[in-house]
Nucleic acid binder design. Structure first.
Length: 285
DNA sequence: CTCCTGTCCTGCCGGC
DNA sequence: TGCCGGCAGGACAGGA
């Protein structure tokens, strides 16, 4: 389930693999994944050159310049959803079962979008429409940028009464966190996922703020170091193993306070809003 | 507004 | 061995 660090790793891989290539062919094997893939993509993308790859939250944004008009005005937006993968390869074999889009470049490189569960998104639009894009316009600050500010973060959290887990999953609070890194950050900050935002103290808010940044930074580092060339042709991109401390660790001793599962300690699984949360009841208050 | 639930989708895994 | 139910969850849509 790609969150900010995985998408960042994919972005860096694509920088190395397909940046500055020119599109020759576009094959769509589905007109709709989560949303319709716009007709404009197929009509407009051919003969454009990929000039820049950006990441905003969990979205990849690929900028394409029109070689004839020299207008650098088209953007392909990709969200990997739950099971989306981007693969690059040079073989000419038939698309795999869940390949929904294959882009062929001028040097023989191909980029495939594969997504079994089809929770992902592919969109294509002109840059003038980016600012007001439905999926982008309400996203909060990038947590690893200067736009992520402790004061504003604290105000947002304090005025809400929902569980802190839900507040952090809300992309308006801060961009790019998903179930895994929310729980890892809360663990580092020793804050229970059940706590109401309004109950967080002046001491806890900076700890959480720092924990969000550090958790994501560590994961990006781990992603980069676990993949030599970032993009593999075998589809492994984005699914490298991380060393999570709590996510999926139900029943394990808490690595920090070393308590085993009981009424007061060990990693426990609970369900919040229908989603799993993992935490140590003893460490996280 | 805020908060919460339902929805989409397929692969995987445990139980019988 | 095969079937089936439950689960995984990002983010929108819509109801309370």
């Amino acid at each position: 389930m790609p969150e900010l660090p995985e998408v960042e790793t994919v972005k860096r891989g694509l920088d190395a693999q397909v940046l500055s290539l020119t599109v020759q062919t576009i094959d769509l094997y589905r007109t709709k994944i989560r949303f319709d893939i716009p007709d404009l993509l197929k009509q407009d993308l051919a003969d454009r050159t990929l000039t820049n790859i950006r990441r905003r939250s969990k979205y990849l944004l690929l900028d394409f310049i029109d070689r004839k008009t020299k207008r650098d005005d088209a953007v392909m937006l990709i969200h990997l959803g739950m099971s989306g993968q981007i693969l690059t390869n040079t073989d000419k074999s038939a698309p795999a079962k869940h390949d929904h889009m294959v882009i062929g470049f001028n040097n023989g490189m191909r980029l495939s979008y594969r997504d079994p569960r089809r929770f992902g998104v592919i969109d294509y639009f002109y840059k003038t429409n980016e600012e007001n894009h439905k999926l982008l316009k309400d996203i909060g600050p990038e947590p690893l940028s200067n736009h992520f500010n402790l004061e504003e973060f604290s105000q947002k959290v304090l005025k809400r009464h929902a569980p802190i887990k839900s507040i952090l999953l809300d992309q308006k609070t801060v961009a790019g966190l998903g179930n895994i890194y929310v729980l890892e950050a809360l663990y580092q900050a020793s804050i229970s996922p059940l706590r109401k935002g309004s109950s967080l103290t002046k001491k806890e808010l900076p700890l959480l703020y720092i924990a969000i940044k550090e958790t994501l930074e560590r994961a990006i580092k781990a992603g980069g170091s676990s993949l030599k060339d970032y993009v593999h042709t075998d589809g492994s991109l984005g699914y490298f193993q991380h060393n999570f401390k709590v996510y999926g660790k139900e029943g394990d001793p808490c690595p920090d306070c070393d308590c085993t599962i009981s009424k007061t300690g060990g990693i426990q699984r609970i369900v919040q809003s229908g989603r799993s949360s993992f935490y140590c009841k003893r460490k996280q208050k």
